[in-house]
C-alpha cells in the first residue's frame, strides 16, 4: 500500500513536471520536430536497408558533420552549406552504389573518417576565442541539446522538408516498392530509375542533415536503420514493414525525448537507446513467432 502511494506520487510528479515542460514553446517544438524527423527516417530507412545502403547513410552523416564544421568556420548560418554538400555527396555515393568495384565499403569508411577528421581539425585550427569547443563538437556529434534550442523558423523549415519527404513516400509508394525490390524490372516497366535514385539521394541527404539536429551526426544513422530492422523481425509484407517501422520510430523518438527531458539525459542517445530496446523486443517477438509456427507445423 505504501509502495503504491509512493508510485502514485512519483507518477503525479512526472505528469506535473511534463505539463510544466510542455508549457514552454521550445519543448513543444522539440516534440513536433522529433516526431516528423523520426517518421521520415523510418520511411527512408526501409528502402536504404533493403537496398543494402545502410553504410552510405552512415557515411553521409559524417560528411554532413564535415560540411557543418566548414560552414561554422566560414560563418554561414544553418543548413545553407551543409545541405547542398551532403546532397551532392549522396548523389555521388548512390549513383556509384551499383558499381561495387569503385565505391566499396572501404571507400565509404575512408570518406566517413576523412570528413570527420577534416571537420574537427578545421574547428580546432580556427578556434580563436576560448569558447567551449569540445562542447560544440559534442553537440554536433551527439546532438545533445540542440533539439531544445530550435527557433520558430527552424521548426518551419523542418516541417516543410519533412512534409515533402512524407508526401513523396506516400505518392510513390508503389514505384518505390518496385524499385527497391528489383531495379532492372522497374526500369523495364517504364519507371525512370535514374530520376527516382536521384530523388532518393536528395531525400537521404535532407533527412540526415535535418535529423542531425535531433540525434547528432554519429547517431542519426541509427534512427534510419533501427526501426526498419525491428519491423522486419516480425513483418511479412512490405506495407506492414513500412507502417510498423514508422510506428516504432515515432514511438521511440517520443519516449526517448520524454525520458531525456525528465531525467536530463542527452536527447539523441536516449532516443537511440529506446530504439535499441525496441529492436531487442521485436527480435524476441520474431523468435517466439517462429517457434510457435514451427510447433504448429
Amino acid at each position: 500500500m505504501n509502495n503504491l502511494f509512493i508510485f502514485l506520487t512519483v507518477k503525479q510528479n512526472v505528469f506535473s513536471k511534463l505539463s510544466e515542460y510542455f508549457s514552454f514553446s521550445f519543448v513543444r517544438y522539440a516534440f513536433i520536430v522529433a516526431i516528423l524527423i523520426s517518421l521520415c527516417s523510418a520511411l527512408l530507412g526501409v528502402s536504404l536497408v533493403l537496398k543494402r545502403y545502410s553504410m552510405i547513410g552512415d557515411g553521409l552523416s559524417h560528411v554532413a558533420f564535415g560540411a557543418g564544421a566548414v560552414s561554422a568556420v566560414v560563418g554561414v548560418a544553418g543548413m545553407t552549406l551543409t545541405l547542398p554538400v551532403t546532397v551532392v555527396t549522396a548523389i555521388f555515393l548512390l549513383k556509384s552504389g551499383g558499381r561495387k568495384k569503385i565505391m566499396g565499403d572501404a571507400a565509404i569508411a575512408m570518406l566517413s573518417a576523412g570528413a570527420l577528421a577534416m571537420g574537427y581539425l578545421l574547428l580546432n585550427i580556427t578556434n580563436t576565442s576560448s569558447s567551449n569547443l569540445s562542447g560544440d563538437v559534442c553537440t554536433s556529434l551527439f546532438g545533445s541539446t540542440s533539439i531544445l534550442t530550435l527557433s520558430r523558423s527552424d521548426v518551419n523549415l523542418c516541417f516543410v522538408l519533412c512534409a515533402a519527404v512524407i508526401l513523396f513516400f506516400v505518392l510513390c509508394y508503389n514505384r518505390m516498392f518496385s524499385l527497391t525490390f528489383d531495379e532492372r524490372f522497374a526500369g523495364a516497366t517504364g519507371i525512370n530509375v535514374g530520376l527516382y535514385n536521384l530523388l532518393t539521394a536528395i531525400i537521404t541527404a535532407t533527412v540526415i542533415v535535418v535529423g542531425m539536429k535531433l540525434a547528432g551526426a554519429l547517431l542519426i544513422s541509427a534512427l534510419i536503420i533501427f526501426p526498419p530492422m525491428a519491423a522486419m523481425r516480425i513483418c511479412k509484407s512490405y506495407r506492414s514493414v513500412i507502417l510498423t517501422s514508422a510506428l516504432i520510430s515515432v514511438f521511440c523518438a517520443f519516449t526517448g525525448l520524454i525520458l531525456a527531458v525528465l531525467y536530463e539525459t542527452p536527447v539523441g542517445a536516449s532516443i537511440v537507446c529506446v530504439n535499441l530496446c525496441a529492436l531487442i523486443f521485436f527480435s524476441l517477438l520474431g523468435f517466439l513467432k517462429k517457434k510457435i509456427r514451427n510447433t504448429e507445423i
Binding site: F185, A186, T189, V241
Partner: peptide
C-alpha cells in the same frame, strides 16, 4: 520481363501478391 535474381531479393519482406502487383506499375 523476368530478370535474374538479385541478392536483395533473397530476404525481402514482401508478400507474393505485392510482388505480382508491382508488375502492373508503369503499364
Amino acid at each position: 520481363f523476368l530478370p535474374q535474381h538479385t541478392e536483395v531479393q533473397r530476404d525481402f519482406p514482401a508478400t507474393v501478391f505485392e510482388i505480382v502487383m508491382s508488375g502492373c506499375i508503369g503499364r
